[in-house]
Simulated assay, not measured.
Amino acid sequence: MFSYPAACDVDEELLELVTMVIASMEGERACKLRPYDRARCTLVHLRKHDTLEQIASGFGIGVATAWRYVNDTIERLARFAPSLTEALTSHHAGGYVLLDGTVAETDRVGAAGHFSGKVRHEGVNLQIIAADDGTLLWISPALPGGAHDVKAAREHDIIDVCTQLDLEVLADKGYQDAGGTVITPIKRRPDTELPDKYKQSNKIHAALRAPVERTISRIKQWRICRHARISPNRLTSVAAAILTLMIYSEPFPTSR
């Protein structure tokens, strides 16, 4: 095995953020790598999803040490992620939010229910909430990939919280009959043609929802969310850590 220099497409500001998070923790014990390099280990793992063996070789440390550095830092970043209510109350008053689900594939599944018919692969279901301009607001904890989007939204209390906050939610057909303030496309009845006015309404609805699709694309730029080689149980912390990093680079919308 040999190591080589490689680039990671993450802004220097995010590297500085993660470094400060590591350095500011109390009770810091002696480590083989300085906080700056431990931050690089973590960002390479999340962004490029290099294996721990690759990271260990590149930074001249053992695999077990790389595992500890990466996991400790992910857990620390996850603690800064906002709760659902905090994320939604940060949103500008009088607006609406966009809701969609995505499946983060994984190849290490030891429990039933993780197979997703949407992607025809094992994975976890993540619910994504974005502002009307596509700014990321919240990423849910991970549920088995076989969970339907509307079921996942209910389990995370997304519908109830948005209703309590009187915040409208634009979602796709996967959230039909969700209730509350969720607005989905108008469904065509069997053996009938949808009237033109409803087709136009659905077209506008799709255009308004488009930014959340771009948000999910940005989340998937963190390659660990494309096809993770880790236990699904760890993806809740991973999702929260990525939420923290993306919030830092995409500040919450301010009041209009």
Rank of each mutant, 00 (worst) to 15 (best):
T89W: 00
A131M: 10
K118A: 01
V119M: 09
W138C: 04
W67E: 12
Y96F: 15
G134K: 05
D107G: 09
A64R: 07
L136I: 10
H114P: 11
V70F: 08
G146H: 06
I139W: 05
A142L: 07
S83Y: 05
A66N: 09
P144K: 04
H114R: 10
G134V: 05
L136A: 09
I128A: 03
T73E: 06
E122K: 06
L126S: 02
L98K: 02
I128K: 02
L99H: 03
L136Y: 05
W67I: 00
G110F: 08
G62M: 09
H114T: 02
G94S: 07
N71V: 00
N71R: 10
A81N: 14
Q127M: 14
P144H: 04
W67S: 13
G95S: 15
G110H: 12
D100I: 01
S140Q: 06
I139H: 05
P82G: 14
R76I: 00
W138H: 15
A130L: 12
T135M: 08
P141M: 01
L126A: 02
P144F: 01
R76S: 13
G101P: 06
P141F: 01
L84I: 12
W138E: 01
A87E: 04
P141R: 11
L143G: 00
A131E: 04
L126F: 08
R108K: 14
I129P: 06
A87C: 10
D132C: 05
A81G: 14
L137W: 11
A147T: 13
A130C: 14
N71D: 13
H121S: 15
V70A: 12
S116R: 11
T135W: 05
L136P: 13
V103E: 04
G146W: 01
V124E: 02
H92W: 12
G146S: 07
L84D: 11
I139E: 10
V103H: 01
V124N: 02
A131W: 04
H121K: 15
R120P: 00
G123L: 07
T73A: 14
G123Q: 11
G101V: 03
A104E: 09
N71C: 05
V124Q: 03
A81Y: 15
W67R: 09
Y69L: 12
A131Y: 01
R68T: 07
P144L: 02
G62Q: 06
I74T: 07
G123Y: 12
A142V: 08
T65F: 00
G146V: 08
A104M: 10
T89S: 13
V124T: 08
E75L: 14
G123P: 13
G123R: 14
G113T: 03
Y69M: 12
L143T: 02
I74H: 07
L98Y: 03
I74S: 05
W67C: 09
E75N: 12
N125E: 00
L84K: 10
R108I: 09
G110L: 02
H121N: 13
E75T: 12
D100K: 04
T135P: 03
A104N: 10
I128V: 15
